[in-house]
Design a protein around this nucleic acid. Structure first.
Length: 531
RNA sequence: GCGCCCGUGGCUCAACUGGAUAGAGUAUCGGACUUCGGAUCCGACGGUUAUAGGUUCGAAUCCUAUCGGGCGCACCA
């Protein structure tokens, strides 16, 4: 919609015209501050320029009114234009808010270690990444969502050790010497019990079988992770195993030889030449590659697969890592600006007003699956999608448990259900509704219609600015407008029934499309809780 | 000490990326059902945008400094 208006304006004025939402919609549907930026150039006052332009732009039946106010130029769209667009949307529901971008984009997210179940902090990255992928796909991008599994290194050994120690303690009733750091939690004792069934009791004490145990356990943990993600409707197109990457190490080392050097029997990446603070060790003195080596191979492999753009969603505690990975990409001969790293800030929890510290190794984590059981996937997704990812998020566990109207997801679903209920109750057929013409609408009806037709702009903006909370904000405000309209205006049984239902169909379409992009179910009716 | 992110009503967050009178939700208080679903709606209260300068037609947004908070600063992953 905005695009159509913009392209018309540019036939009249050759230059970039920024269209924005007026502060107050009574001014019009769109506005442009272009007169201000031209004021200097033309040596005229912004007010005068705006007046001249508004006369020029008014010559099109797309607008019912073009006016200049204090230097701003405001546009009011005509009803015939809005009706035409609404009809198109209702007849092409699957196409609504779509676009045809062509680029191939790889989004890597979650990538949690397979050493324990997902906790609440992972939920944020999961929801953010999945929602971004959904938005991108809707806009036509060829999106691949990927999970990088760190199934190599010390942590895997530690997993095996942790299970053995737990088994010795709780099953064999032995007193054990706990090391400084180890994994614990309910899942570890479950794994210990399962291991005894799967293998034999000796698996708990045989140190030579620790690795075998660990490899078996990480697959089970990974299944738990995938299950939780699945319950949240977070899907991945591919999984990459760190352990499978190292075969390619020699080749990659050859490819990157300009960027590495040997010193003190170790191999360093000369990342300080590419903006990092220090050079980084990639191979230790004993010949074992570091974690960074795995990431270098992984990113080489990513770039070899030939995407136009790469998005990594990492926890904020990894920000120091960006420079070295980008340096490696440069040394590999690729354009590191194609890699965009989005940091999702920490999620901190409050419990009864007190900060709730989480430590994975100490076992006092809040599991994502537990929250999911309590509030459901829809509410979980909505809450995490509605916050900008670069601010630290803080919330009280008790507030998340609420299932009443303070939870905005119900508010939006209720709006959708209200519309569907009215259409069921109406005697009109869908054809009669569709064929109605949207004309002589009240001011409120007109602004509701316009708001509903704004979804394409919102989706586009939310994706390209990587700010998915714009979509949740929009849905909440559209739902509020609908509820108010419903309260103020009688619809069924009036002479305007057909056209008003058509209007509400457009609202429902926007709500449903928006919710599905958030991975949330749009309900046709709501079932009240029984008391 | 260095680097990254962030400071907006009591609380959780917006503000179209430099635009018009800084907006929502929540909390608190007060209203609206002979009604298409009250899981709704309306109103009130609540702000020197952490502080001090600067840039310009115009600043919550950009620059500098200060204060406060989070996260990093591994041959762990």
């Amino acid at each position: 919609m905005k695009q159509r208006v913009k392209s018309f304006l540019q036939t009249q004025y050759d230059g970039d015209i920024i269209l924005e939402k007026p502060k107050d919609r009574s001014f019009g549907h769109f506005a442009t501050p272009i007169a201000f930026s031209l004021a200097k150039e033309l040596r005229k006052s912004p007010v005068k320029i705006a007046e001249e332009f508004s006369v020029l732009f008014a010559q099109n039946n797309m607008f019912s009114e073009v006016s200049s106010v204090k230097g701003y130029i405001n546009f009011k769209l005509s009803e015939s234009f809005l009706d035409e667009y609404a009809s198109w949307a209702l007849n092409n529901q699957k196409e609504f808010a779509k676009a045809n971008n062509q680029q191939k984009i790889l989004i890597e997210f979650v990538s949690a270690n397979p050493t324990g179940p997902l906790h609440i902090g992972h939920a944020r990255g999961a929801v953010f990444g999945d929602t971004l992928a959904r938005l991108g796909r809707h806009l036509g991008y060829d999106i691949t969502s990927e999970y990088y599994i760190n199934d190599a290194g010390n942590q895997i050994d530690l997993l095996g050790l942790s299970i053995q120690l737990e088994g010795q303690n709780s099953i064999l009733k032995q007193t054990v010497q706990w090391p400084e750091s180890f994994y614990r939690g309910e899942y570890i004792s479950q794994l210990a019990n399962q291991a005894v069934q799967e293998f034999s009791i000796s698996i708990l004490t045989d140190i030579s079988r620790q690795r075998e145990l660990a490899l078996w356990a990480k697959d089970i943990v990974m299944k738990m992770i995938v299950q939780t993600l699945d319950d949240t409707h977070v899907a991945f197109d591919s999984f990459v195993y760190e352990s499978a990457l190292y075969d390619a190490w020699d080749d990659v080392l050859e490819k990157i030889h300009n960027g590495v050097y040997e010193k003190e029997n170790k191999i360093f990446l000369a990342s300080s030449l590419k903006g990092d603070d220090n050079d980084r060790v990639v191979v230790r003195e004993d010949g074992r590659p570091t974690y960074l080596a795995g990431d270098i191979i992984y990113h080489n492999q990513k770039f070899e697969r030939g995407f136009d753009h790469y998005i990594n969603i990492w926890g904020a505690d990894h920000h120091g890592y960006i420079a070295r990975v980008k340096a490696a990409i440069e040394f590999l001969g690729y354009d590191s600006s194609k890699l965009e790293v989005l940091l999702s800030q920490m999620v901190s929890l409050l419990k009864d007003g007190e900060p709730y510290k989480m430590s994975k190794r100490a076992g006092n984590v809040i599991l994502m699956s537990d929250i999911l059981d309590e509030i459901g996937s829809d509410a979980l997704r909505f809450i995490f999608a509605s916050k900008k990812c670069d601010t630290a998020l803080e919330f009280d566990i008790e507030a998340l448990k609420k299932q009443d109207s303070s939870n905005p997801v119900y508010y939006i679903q209720y709006a959708h259900a209200r519309i569907k209920t009215m259409i069921r109750k109406s005697g009109l057929s869908s054809g009669e509704i569709l064929n109605a013409t949207l004309h002589s609408l009240s001011h409120d009806a007109n602004s509701l219609l316009f708001e509903a037709l704004l979804l394409p702009e919102i989706v586009d903006d939310a994706f390209h600015s990587r700010q998915i909370q714009k979509l949740t904000d929009y849905l909440r405000s559209l739902a509020a407008k609908l509820h108010k309209f419903y309260y103020d205006c009688k619809i069924l049984g009036t002479s305007d029934e057909a056209k008003l239902l058509k209007l509400l169909q457009v609202v429902a379409l926007s709500l449903k499309t928006g919710m599905s992009l958030l991975g949330i179910e749009a309900k046709d009716s709501m079932i009240k809780d029984e008391y």
